[in-house]
Every structure is written in structure tokens, then in C-alpha cells.
């Protein structure tokens, strides 16, 4: 219950900040996602009521754009660049390795909510390719060996905290 109330209050503030104009829907959802790390259903319903946009239209927008996630995401977001330059430099092998290491597919979050795996169509750091962005950190010239190292490192840091 408390969580739902929290969603609603924060969502209301976000809608108000944007002035409630219907064209602000995408910006509103972007802010909600930034606040909660995903789009909670309660928040989308609040948006629908406050902005006078049918829930079906809100859900259309939420499911159309790559930027939005309908499920809670992990503490760390692993974004594998699958742009063309990274693809020809072997990004798919890196993807396979991450899937194997984290036991999840792109779009999924692992069981202890530590990692979410995502694919991104080019981060524009092609000189670093294949490149992976974890949270805000760029990891360039990725190799399968580096995948192990990086994930182990993050897990170790997490355990220490």
C-alpha cells in the first residue's frame, strides 16, 4: 500500500511539473522511469487520469518506445551496444557471454535484482567497439574474458557494501 501511495504522489508531482499538456506524455513517462527505474502500473494509471489520456494510449506509448521498461530493473543496467560497428567487431559473442554469465536474456533482470541486461543500437563510441555501458561507465574493446572480470568485480563491490 505504502509503495503505491509513493508512486502516486511522486507521479502527480511529475505531471504537474510538465503542465499537464497531452503532448508532454513521453517526457512525463521518461521522468517517471528516471524516478522509479521503470514504469509502475500505478504511475501510468495516475498519468492517464491526471492528463486525461486513455490508459490504452498511455500503454501504447509505454510499449512502443525502447526507452521504457514495464518491469522493475536491477541495481546495475548492462547495456550491450549492438550497433553495426560493434556487430562486425563481435558484439554477439559478448552478448552470449553476458547471457551465460548472468543467466538472463536481454530485457530481463536476474534473480537477486542485481543486473538487467539490455541491448542498445549504438552508443556512438565506435572506436571502443565492442563496447558495453554498465550504468554510466563505458567498457571498451570488450572480450569474453573481460565480461567475467567486470561482473566479478561488481559482485565483489556489492558484497563488500
Amino acid at each position: 500500500m505504502k509503495k503505491t501511495a509513493n508512486f502516486t504522489a511522486k507521479t502527480k508531482a511529475i505531471v504537474k511539473k510538465h503542465g499537464g499538456d497531452r503532448s508532454a506524455l513521453i517526457a512525463v513517462l521518461q521522468d517517471i522511469q528516471e524516478t522509479f527505474n521503470y514504469l509502475p502500473k500505478e504511475a501510468m494509471n495516475t498519468v492517464s487520469t491526471m492528463m486525461g489520456i486513455p490508459a490504452s494510449r498511455v500503454y501504447e506509448v509505454a510499449t512502443f518506445y525502447n526507452a521504457f521498461s514495464l518491469n522493475p530493473r536491477g541495481k546495475h543496467i548492462v547495456k550491450i551496444c549492438v550497433g553495426t560497428a560493434c556487430h562486425v567487431r563481435g558484439a554477439s559473442a559478448i552478448q552470449d557471454k553476458f547471457e551465460q554469465k548472468l543467466l538472463i536474456k536481454p530485457g530481463e533482470t536476474n534473480q537477486d535484482q542485481q543486473f538487467t541486461l539490455e541491448l542498445v543500437n549504438c552508443v556512438g563510441a565506435c572506436a571502443l567497439g565492442p563496447v558495453v555501458v554498465i550504468d554510466t561507465e563505458y567498457h571498451g574493446q570488450m572480450t569474453m574474458n573481460k565480461v567475467d572480470k567486470i561482473i566479478n568485480e561488481i559482485n565483489k563491490e556489492g558484497a563488500q557494501q
Binding site: 501510468m44 486513455p54 490508459a55 490504452s56 494510449r57 498511455v58 500503454y59 501504447e60 510499449t63 512502443f64
Partner: peptide, 17 residues
């Protein structure tokens, strides 16, 4: 507007929110 078109590309479906 009870129903809509969700997702995109080949995953596009019709349904309720």
C-alpha cells in the same frame, strides 16, 4: 478508447491496457 495497439514491429498486438 478501451483498446489499443501495443508494442511495435512484429510484436504488435491489439488488446486492453
Amino acid at each position: 478508447s478501451a483498446i489499443g495497439l501495443f508494442a511495435r514491429g512484429s510484436r504488435k498486438t491489439v488488446g486492453t491496457p
